[in-house]
């Protein structure tokens, strides 16, 4: 064979309009997975403020751990980010259940429907949780 023409990866994500349910589910699962693992590292970093807390200031509620968390929670942007995190976590959980079913070979014919169901359910849960997340003292 003389020569050939490699069209590269343009055709992959350039063709997102043609993706079907299973492909979208994979993309969302991967994306939410990256967000969650990133959050896990950040989360432990923030919680590290609890190391070496002085018992006296903890009694007074003025220790670094308590003040860091309430400080973050007082920012509106953090509240919105938390709603985003909830959305990401709920979708990852629901689609994860769907993937476990697929792994067990259950309901493979309706894998597209179960993806749409997990999207809808995620939306519903997030909308219902917005008051709880944005409510409470903002300080």
């Amino acid at each position: 064979m003389s020569q050939s023409y490699n069209r590269g990866t343009v055709e992959d994500f350039g063709r997102w309009r043609e993706f079907s349910a299973g492909m979208w589910a994979w993309i969302f699962h991967k994306f939410t997975g990256w967000v969650l693992v990133g959050y896990l590292f950040t989360h432990i970093a923030v919680l590290s403020t609890s190391v070496g807390v002085d018992p006296a200031s903890a009694q007074a509620g003025s220790d670094l751990y308590t003040s860091t968390i309430s400080g973050l929670e007082s920012l509106l942007i953090v509240r919105f980010l938390e709603v985003g995190l909830l959305a990401v976590a709920v979708f990852h959980i629901l689609n994860g259940i769907r993937l476990l079913m697929v792994d067990l070979g259950v309901g493979l014919e309706s894998q597209d429907k179960s993806f749409y169901a997990s999207l809808l359910l995620t939306g519903a849960i997030v909308v219902a949780s917005v008051p709880t997340f944005l409510g409470g003292k903002l300080a």
């Binding site: 903890a58 509620g61 220790d63 308590t66 938390e82 909830l86 409470g136």
Partner: peptide, 11 residues
């Protein structure tokens, strides 16, 4: 987030 509100967490 629901039982204990995140903003009210203390050490």
């Amino acid at each position: 987030h629901f039982v204990n509100h995140a903003a009210d967490l203390t050490f």
